[in-house]
């Protein structure tokens, strides 16, 4: 079955996107990412060492852009200007690669997105030729605004970044999915494989996660579980679940032919 995830015109066979943060070391990072089967991986952009740590290993040496689609993010940015500046540096760093993850935070306690700044940054970035995947609140109105600005993917939170609380508002996600013409990916909040499956069963086009894998007891095994969770949820969505019936219990075995009657 050809069931690709198409983002900004490029087809991907995996619907699981993963972050590269919070791992013990680069070895664990690369093993977990291999186990996840992810093709798109997020990275953050930060100040380099300026000579105090020569020969420091570089993340892109273990996760080469030739093999993975690198999705630079704006994690830690609290204004549109800061986010735009960060992604311009990212585009230069990645030799003109222009697929990016925009996130503008509004609050250090919850990491909830600042939607006015997110919308402002999205507008500037799209005009500047970026292909923007936007982390956002699970608000269908603002999700629509991001799409109208020209974002290539809408990425509402399922619950707070790093919380592992799962899908708190499936009905809002459904509204966002139903109206969107571009892929909708749950970004943030997934805690375990069943959460990823639920997101996909709702009709999400993909799931982006980091902490749920990196902070599992066994990140490599959890990465494999998440891969299966996403695949199972996707197949269940495509298969179409049976209707829920509260009272009309119907046995799976024949009602006739019972012995001794």
């Amino acid at each position: 079955m050809n069931d690709s995830l198409v983002i900004a015109g490029k087809a991907y066979s995996s619907r699981l996107l993963v972050g590269t943060g919070k791992y013990k070391d680069f070895d664990e990072t690369s093993r977990a990412i291999a186990a996840s089967g992810a093709e798109i991986i997020t990275v953050a952009i930060r100040r380099s060492n300026i000579g105090q740590n020569p020969g420091e290993p570089n993340l892109l040496d273990i996760l080469p852009p030739e093999r993975y689609t690198i999705l630079p993010n704006t994690a830690g940015c609290y204004s549109a200007d800061e986010a735009v500046r960060t992604l311009r540096l990212a585009r230069e760093l990645l030799d003109g690669h222009d697929l990016v993850k925009l996130e503008v935070l509004g609050d250090a306690e919850t990491l909830f997105p600042n939607m006015p700044e997110t919308l402002k940054a999205a507008e500037t970035l799209v005009k500047d030729g970026f292909k923007v995947m936007a982390y956002c609140a699970d608000d269908p109105i603002q999700a629509k605004m991001l799409e109208e600005i020209g974002c290539c993917a809408i990425m509402p939170l399922a619950s707070l970044i790093g919380s592992g609380m799962g899908i708190l508002n499936p009905w809002n996600l459904r509204l966002i999915i139903d109206q969107a013409q571009v892929p909708v990916l749950v970004d943030a909040g997934v805690g375990t494989a069943s959460d990823a499956a639920i997101a996909m069963e709702l009709g999400c086009d993909g799931v982006l996660m980091n902490t749920a894998i990196a902070k599992a007891q066994d990140p490599v095994l959890m990465a494999s579980a998440m891969k299966k969770g996403v695949e199972a949820g996707r197949e269940a969505f495509l298969a179409g679940r049976m209707p829920r019936k509260t009272y009309a219990a119907s046995p799976s075995s024949p009602t006739g032919g019972m012995i001794g009657r």
Partner: peptide
């Protein structure tokens, strides 16, 4: 001047 690299992040 700002000199940046890619680091682990989600």
């Amino acid at each position: 001047l700002e000199i940046v690299v890619a680091v682990g992040g989600g």
